[in-house]
Structures are given as C-alpha cells and as structure tokens.
Design a protein around this nucleic acid. Structure first.
Lengths: 168, 168
DNA sequence: TTGAATCACGAAAACAGTTTTCAAAATCGA
DNA sequence: TCGATTTTGAAAACTGTTTTCGTGATTCAA
C-alpha cells in the first residue's frame, strides 16, 4: 500500500536513472536530444503525483518560459511510448500523467471533496480479477480500478480542499 | 454475470416504466414535457448496450430528423440527473450512456480487438474494495473497474471486429 | 568543422466532443 | 387563449488535444 505523502522528496538517483532511460529511448528511436525535451522530462520526473499537462507546463515555464503546449504534449507522448510514464483519465476531462511508482501497478482512491488521490495495491484483488476474466474466456492486458468517494478524516480533508481552492 | 447478447430484445414493460419514471422526474423538476424529449428518451431506452451520443442521434433522426445534437446532449444530461442512466467513459474520448441494467451495479471487460463490452458483477470483488477503503479511512461513493484485454475466442472476436470495421 | 539532411520547435490553426447562445417556437397554468 | 417561462435547433463558443507550417537545432558524414 503506497500512499502519496506530500513531504516525501523524490529519489534523485531514481530520477536520474529515468532520465538516462529516456535518453536511451530517444536514441534507439533515432530521435534527437533537445534542450526542451530535457527540460520537460527533468521537470516531470521531479514532480510527484498525477500531473496534468497544465500543471507540468506551469513548472516547465519556470525553467524556460518559451516552451509551449505543443512540445509538452509531444514529449509526454514520448514518455508514454517509452514506457516510463502512464496516462490516466479520472473523468474530469483532462489527461493526467504519472511516472511509474516503485510499485509496478496500483489502483486509485479519489476523494471528491479534496481531490486527493491515494494509490493502493492488493494481490487478492488482482487474483480475483484474473479469475473472473478466466471464467469469461477473456484475457486481461491491463485494468483500471478507481474508487471515488471521500476521506473519513474530515478535518484533514477540509484543509486540503481549502488549500486547493486557494491555489487554483 | 450478465452478458450482453445481441439478439435479446428489450423488455417493453420495463422500458415503459422507465419512460414513466422520467416523465415524473421532469414534472418534479418543473420542466416541460416536449415531443423531442419523449422521442429521445423513448429511442434511448429501446437501444441496448453502451450508447454514444452519435449512435443515439442517428437513431433519433430516423424518427425525427430535425432533432439536433444539442437536444440529445441536453436530454442525456437530464437522464443522468434523473438517475435512470449512467455516463461512462472508456478512454476513447467519447461519453457513452447506459440505461441501468437489471443488475444494480456492474463492471466491464472491454475487448480491444473487437470492441465488445461485457458486463460482470462479483460480490467478493465489491466486498474486497470496501475492506480496502476501510483500511485507508476512505468512504466509497462509487467505483469503476474496467478490464481491458481480448476475447480468447479468436474466431468470434475476429468476426465481430470485421463486422464493426465494415459498418464504420 | 562544415554542410546537408533530418528532426524538433513554437505559434497558431485545426480538430473532436461537448456546451452555450440566441431568436423563434412550444408548453402549460391561469 | 394569453402570457410567462422553458425548450428548441443552428450556429458559435469552448476545452483539451493534435496538427500544420515556417524557422531553428541537431546529427552525422565528409
């Protein structure tokens, strides 16, 4: 069970590995290394959580204000193709991107009050899904499970909601 | 486990109950009964499966060609508000609408080859989710589980894929 | 290094799905 | 039936994303 914690810093060594891995991907594909791609990738991997294009662009612009939407979108697609990043959609109309966590696969609980997204993983759940697929003569490539609801810790939740409202 | 079967006819009695239920909803909300809404709702409840706006509009136009997108969208929102219909998104960018099945809640298996959508429900799965939420101090309002993969019956799957391709 | 071929960039336009606008038409209670 | 209010349909607007196109960067062979 991997919870997102706001005070956890990114693992610098891991980030650098990912950057190297992406650089390798770019080479393998016969694409070119550019300052913009490096900036975007570097910024992305140092952010935590489930990042929208707008959030990423805002951070990227702090480093290089001339980088625009198009390049961010294009680079995110490359990141997804490289397998280092996954695209998710939680039904609010925007794509969110997530660098692979330490955990290979995980599901999500989304609080509708404060917007917090918690990650979780449970082997029993996975096994049960496999079993159900089997019964239906179906082979699972991937799945997604999202629990929408609310934090039971109302104080912490309200505080997050307030903070979020103030920012955005 | 409720499989969608293409030859199953809609239950006329059930459809009429739903139409009546929607009419009641419209009244309660102080809205007006219109020919267009009746047409759209009537057509919708007589279709099966997971219906896109475009599919619905095409059917609606056979009855009344003057009805346009806007009214279909608006009526679908009303149907969702009334609780008679659920909106779903499977990640291909379009909303799909589903009249409540006999089963209160169900999950989906989506074949990426032929596009078939199978519905399923499993109480153990539901219970396990509740348990995990509990452990995380989280209260579930609703959830969604989608298994993406492929039919193991390759012949039937290929036939469906071909048919789908031919239609457009 | 230099040059040529290729690729990537950024701004803006295009695009797809959905929502809103607005003037005309329909509904419904008095 | 009248009149206030809602709904309609066509078109415009909107949102998130993708593509276009002219310019600029990167790569690699010479």
């Amino acid at each position: 069970m991997a919870m997102e914690t706001k005070d956890k810093n990114v693992d610098e060594k891991l980030v650098q590995e990912k950057e190297a891995s992406f650089a390798r991907f770019i080479q393998e594909q016969g694409l070119k290394t550019t300052r913009q791609r490096n900036t975007i990738v570097s910024v992305f991997f140092r952010m935590r959580g489930h990042i929208s294009v707008e959030e990423l662009l805002a951070e990227v612009k702090k480093v290089n204000p001339r980088i625009g939407y198009a390049t961010v979108y294009r680079t995110l697609h490359l990141l997804v193709e490289s397998g280092l990043v996954e695209e998710r959609r939680f039904g609010d109309g925007l794509a969110r991107y997530e660098g692979h966590s330490d955990v290979e696969h995980h599901d999500h609980m989304i609080c509708l009050e404060c917007g917090q997204i918690m990650e979780f993983f449970n082997p029993k759940l996975e096994a049960l899904q496999e079993q159900l697929a089997e019964e239906n003569n179906f082979q699972i490539y991937r799945h997604r499970l999202e629990l929408y609801g609310a934090c039971k810790d109302k104080d912490a939740c309200a505080a997050r909601a307030k903070k979020k409202g103030a920012q955005g």
